[in-house]
Simulated assay, not measured.
Amino acid sequence: MSRLTVCRDCCCGSTRKVPALDHDEQLRRLSEIAQVRVSDCLDVCEQANVVVVRPSPAGRAAGGRAVWLGLLNQPDAVEDIAAWIRAGGPGLAPIPDILALHVFTKSRSQGRPPR
């Protein structure tokens, strides 16, 4: 099963930054589709809300790597992530076009990625 790291700190998960989204509901729904680890700030506040999709063991064996998704500020984003995970996720299924719009690369100067 894929694992998710969900940023929740100063910007991600904040109604100050993204007032129109029910952040608690987003986290609850993500927890229904994968194992979720909630992280303090991942140092990419300009991308809030951020979710890192980690490959399943089979996905990792097939060459899958963590995929950083940012600006996940629409309720439907959870359904897009769920569909990708059901299809296999990183390494086993191509990322859906709609999620590809949210992919970003975290620079090394922004800190270490989650494990």
Rank of each mutant, 00 (worst) to 15 (best):
R3K: 15
R3N: 05
L4P: 02
C7H: 01
C7S: 06
R8M: 04
R8E: 08
C10S: 12
C12T: 05
T15G: 14
T15K: 14
K17E: 11
V18E: 04
V18H: 03
V18M: 05
V18W: 04
V18F: 04
P19N: 11
D22Q: 10
H23K: 01
D24L: 13
Q26V: 12
L27D: 04
Q35F: 10
Q35A: 14
V36R: 06
V36G: 00
S39N: 08
D40F: 11
L42C: 02
C45M: 06
Q47A: 05
Q47V: 03
A48K: 03
V50A: 06
V50N: 04
V51R: 04
V52L: 02
V53D: 10
P55H: 03
S56Q: 05
S56A: 08
S56H: 00
P57R: 12
A58T: 00
G59E: 08
A62D: 01
G64P: 00
G64D: 09
R65G: 13
R65E: 15
L69C: 06
G70F: 02
L72G: 01
L72D: 01
Q74T: 10
P75H: 03
A77D: 15
A77C: 15
V78C: 02
E79C: 04
I81E: 07
I85E: 00
R86Q: 15
G91D: 04
L92G: 02
I95Q: 07
P96M: 08
P96R: 05
I98A: 09
A100F: 06
A100E: 15
H102A: 07
R108M: 13
R108Q: 13
S109A: 13
S109E: 14
R112A: 15
P113Y: 02
P113H: 02
P114G: 01
P114T: 01
